[in-house]
């Protein structure tokens, strides 16, 4: 862990502890710090802003009313993501109760990201993004979610497993599966081919 990371985490821990003591300012700070990232995460599960806002409302009501009994999570962000995720699932589930959903463990809600074309500078980059987009969108929702948590939120496998409520080995398996399905992107990338040839050349020379 880097120095900056430690300082940042220490600050977060202090805010969390103050909030648990009933400090209203600390509670407000938590809300303001995480509102935007929570919305962004929630938006991947549903485009219904009311559902996301209701879920964030419920999450913060629960935090405040149960603050005395809360533990000290290693990462506050992780804890909030995990809680928001389960609240949204319950809300979506009760909305679609006419569709029979038997297995509670397997959430079958779509997970959808949308790419920003504006930011793409050159053509090669656009081409790459198009390919990634095509293949990521073809993945099952849970594989898309794990890719998102990994490469967008930059989380480790233990943190991903915690949020998605699966064990770490399942998280690894899930991402292997996603990689497997993404192989086309990796394979057809020109550079990968060049490199493969290059490494053959090196081996032959030795």
């Amino acid at each position: 862990m880097s120095h900056e990371q430690i300082v940042h985490d220490d600050h977060n821990t202090a805010v969390w502890l103050a909030f648990k003591e009933g400090n209203w300012d600390a509670y407000t700070q938590l809300y303001n710090q995480y509102f935007k990232v929570l919305n962004n995460y929630g938006h991947k599960f549903t485009r219904d802003v009311n559902v996301i806002e209701d879920a964030i409302h419920d999450l913060f009501i629960r935090l405040w009313t149960n603050r005395a009994g809360l533990g000290n999570p290693v990462s506050v962000k992780n804890y909030l993501f995990k809680s928001l995720r389960s609240i949204i699932f319950r809300k979506l589930q009760s909305k679609s109760r006419f569709v029979d959903i038997e297995d509670e463990a397997e959430h079958n809600f779509p997970f959808e990201i949308s790419f920003d074309q504006q930011l793409m500078a050159d053509e090669e980059e656009q081409e790459l993004q198009k390919k990634i987009k095509f293949h990521v969108k073809a993945l099952p929702a849970r594989q898309q979610e794990i890719i998102y948590l990994r490469f967008y939120e930059g989380l480790g496998y233990d943190e991903i497993a915690d949020i998605m409520e699966i064990n770490i080995s399942s998280a690894y398996k899930l991402i292997y599966k996603a990689f497997d399905n993404l192989q086309d992107v990796l394979k057809t990338s020109k550079l990968a081919i060049v490199l493969a040839l290059y490494s053959c050349f090196c081996i032959n020379n030795h």
């Binding site: 407000t28 809300y31 303001n32 509102f35 935007k36 919305n39 962004n40 938006h43 802003v49 996301i52 806002e53 964030i56 409302h57 913060f60 009501i61 405040w64 990201i113 949308s114 790419f115 920003d116 930011l119 793409m120 980059e125 790459l128 993004q129 990634i132 990521v136 890719i147 490469f151 967008y152 992107v185 990796l186 990338s189 550079l191 990968a192 490199l195």
Partner: peptide, 29 residues
């Protein structure tokens, strides 16, 4: 370079911050 390009291309996503409703949701809370 290729690996970092892939990650960076994936990360260029639309961000939904819902900032305009931040104070409204807080009022509700």
């Amino acid at each position: 370079a290729e690996a970092s390009k892939i990650i960076k291309a994936y990360r260029k996503q639309d961000v939904f911050t819902n900032e305009e409703n931040q104070s409204k949701v807080w009022q509700r809370i």
